[in-house]
Amino acid sequence: MPIHEEHLIRPENLKTQEDLVIDGIDVSGHWSTFIESRVVTDYNEALEEEIAALPGGEYIHRCWQCGSCTNSCTVNEVNPDFNPRYWIYLIRMGMESELLRDKEIIWQCVSCNKCTYACPRDVVPEGVMKATAHWLELKGHTPKSPSMVFDEVFTEQVIQTGKIEEGRIIRSFFKRTGQELMQDWLVEMVKRLVAKLPVTLLWKMGLANVLRPRTSGWAGARDAIQDYVDEKNAEHRKALRLDELVELAKQEAKPGQQMAAE
């Protein structure tokens, strides 16, 4: 049978034969394309629970696959492979290897919450995207995304001083991601800005870089937040069994020692 909606199938799973004869009948042309059959054996049955244990993933179990999230999604419009409904499906089915095929783009969710607005089941797909991106990093499937580095730089500064100063965030971000600070478009923007600004204001903006804005009396809040962060990190490691995995990897790395112990 000809395959309808061929675009929904990954190209590597489509097989087309030029000259095909089956049981003496020439079936080439219209009838020569097949979908590769495949059997999924590597389910991770804990996948849904692991995502649900991370902030944002709590309501994934409510999804009934209506597709409104993908339909309304800002990033999907730019990149059709960005498909929240499908990823939620894979996670709930435990199809980890299938999910990992899209690991490089999941972090690109821009948190516009159009999906949250459209979702009839209060899944908060935006949260699920963040939880999934987080999961990919915690499990070591992806390096830290630029977005995560940015979030970290930002959050560290807030926890330390109570406030942020944009110039400093931008500098630390470019440094940590190994990018050139003097991107030509940033330079152009600053040039246009400076051309119109009075000197006194430039002075003030320069000073903000030196006299870091901070909330006074912040030390108490800083320590209290830091305690909470440490506690949460430990919880997440436990939910994803990260310490077990690390232990396992250590054992495998040192077969000699293990034998000696036996």
Partner: peptide, 16 residues
């Protein structure tokens, strides 16, 4: 006053 957390802190932890 302090920073409200902007778009970033929630991705580290929404409760902060």
């Amino acid at each position: 006053w302090n920073c409200c957390g902007a778009m970033e802190v929630k991705n580290i932890d929404p409760k902060i």
